[in-house]
Nucleic acid binder design. Sequence first.
DNA 1: TCCCGAAGTTCGATTTAAATG
DNA 2: GCATTTAAATCGAACTTCGGG
Lengths: 348, 348
Amino acid sequence: MVTIRDVAKESGFSSTTVSIVLNDAPLARYIPPVTKKRIMRAAQKLGYRPNQFARSLRSKRSHTVGVMVFDMTDPYCTLVLRGIENTLYQASYLPILTDVHNERVRFERYLEMLLDRRIEGLIVLANWLFLDINLLADLEKSSIPTAIIGCELKGDSMSSVIVDNEVGGYAALEHLHSLGHRKIAFIRGPKGLTDSSPRWRGVRKCAKASRLELDTCLIVDLPESRDPISSFEAGFKLTEGLIKQKRQFTALLAFDDMTAFGAIRALAKSGLRVPEQCSVIGFDDVAPSALYTPPLTTVRQPMEAMGASAVGVVLDGINAVLEKREIAASHRRVAPELVVRESTRSLL
Amino acid sequence: MVTIRDVAKESGFSSTTVSIVLNDAPLARYIPPVTKKRIMRAAQKLGYRPNQFARSLRSKRSHTVGVMVFDMTDPYCTLVLRGIENTLYQASYLPILTDVHNERVRFERYLEMLLDRRIEGLIVLANWLFLDINLLADLEKSSIPTAIIGCELKGDSMSSVIVDNEVGGYAALEHLHSLGHRKIAFIRGPKGLTDSSPRWRGVRKCAKASRLELDTCLIVDLPESRDPISSFEAGFKLTEGLIKQKRQFTALLAFDDMTAFGAIRALAKSGLRVPEQCSVIGFDDVAPSALYTPPLTTVRQPMEAMGASAVGVVLDGINAVLEKREIAASHRRVAPELVVRESTRSLL
DNA sequence: TCCCGAAGTTCGATTTAAATG
DNA sequence: GCATTTAAATCGAACTTCGGG
């Protein structure tokens, strides 16, 4: 490996001067262009690349951000990760990706490993989180800039980026209602998920506003489960249950897209066609939704933008730390967007 | 930050002794249990965590593996990444994830960044690769253990893990043939993809073995494109074209699952039901395939196992380097598995 | 000679303080 | 005092060498 001393020897200057020149440090003003040229050429010639370990040791910086996901296999992650990656790339940071598998020990071990690596920031993708929220509290004391995506929280220590679930829930029902649907089945999210209740609040709000009465016989809940795929299976079973009980409904509002897929499957199995005999709307707009047959109408979370936003917040935090400024945590709530495709249809 | 010297002071021993004890170095045999206890307690009390920068600087090790993906949004990546993550975790390595977006400059920049970080190994997920293969040759000179997933290559410097495309292609056609299908449409992969030709070779081999004549009017090719989603759109358009030309076929063999999704969509749009009027088979078994309506019959690549396998190879390489052993690159070809679901049906 | 522990060097880059002309 | 350059200290851990008992 070629070191700064090799460059010094090759160029005929001291390693101090080489360092100053190559980093374009303040003192570089005093160094005559000839010297700079010579040093540059020497470095070039030798193919010198500074040792990041040594650099980090002095500067205490890693130019690395930790990314913690609770379950990678959730399709929700993909685009968020893309947003994170892309924004970090612009800023010349590199992400260390960890997948907690919704396991407590794994969370703790990974957090320790990341902290040991002196990550400068941390982004947590709490998409399908069934761990004690107290775990997240542990993060607070780590005192590194942290942003959580998909889990609302108060407080000054950690930032958060979430979609406005209430607005989204409202939009979903409003869409079905505007199409003339009145007998609507609902599959709500599991109690343990922070998204569930605001999303349902939005639905109720819309129902109230449009004087729609919700039939409690048509409301079912997703069970708790650590596995995001399970919402597909649960969506399937719950819908099947509804059908078997001969509940009449012309539309179904699912907690998320996976649930909607399960519901569509159940409907198809019973010979009910979507959207001809039953409209279905999901939530999230994960990648497969656009590819589904029929393409799924859903409420989109701007996932890539949310990833980018989280990185932005964390980067601001890092800069604040570097400049020894205090900075308050920011809590961003981004607007969802109704995406009308072909799984919903007007009753008229 | 608490350093080893703080622990030394606290425990009353020198930093040397502390280092020996905490690392359980060979010399630790000579150190009496009392001393060890005292040092351990001091470390515990102060919450000492060794500085990885300093450690890496001396040991020249980063305990980090670079992971390079050509397009994260390809659903193919998800499970492979899970396999990689999980296996690295067992071995206490951390992955740095980079997404090349199929862009040359990005590839080069990321590679440089990873090398600067002194990654100990590199895993390349060449799933939807439309860059010059020569780029990969650049990797050779990096001289760090490297494994490529999804792209066959010879040579001793880099290892590879691929699915046996020929066997897979064979199995796909064999399945359709065994169901009684004789008029079969084919959507082949783009020429630029290394998977395309062996997969097709398998198909032809099976056709020959079962004396099935392939109708060239029913064979179409996916265009080149950097975007993996494009195979959905192309699958849609190509199938639509086939239908518009009134080509008769009772089954369709798609290059991959995304293409199959596009084909199903086109069939549905023309009022053709799957599998009643046309069977469709894909390749890969990406996550959405099982959730599709109808659930897609496909040829599964054991993606998680392939990720794990690549990590295994790289880890072996790392150990070889540490022990200054020479080690030959390994080229693993794993068997695919036919997954029969509901998008294919017997003609009888 | 064996056991225990400490002093000092090394890894490679940055930075402070100081030395030249 | 000014422009130009550098010796030496520093970051934190690990390893080599050495000395005392």
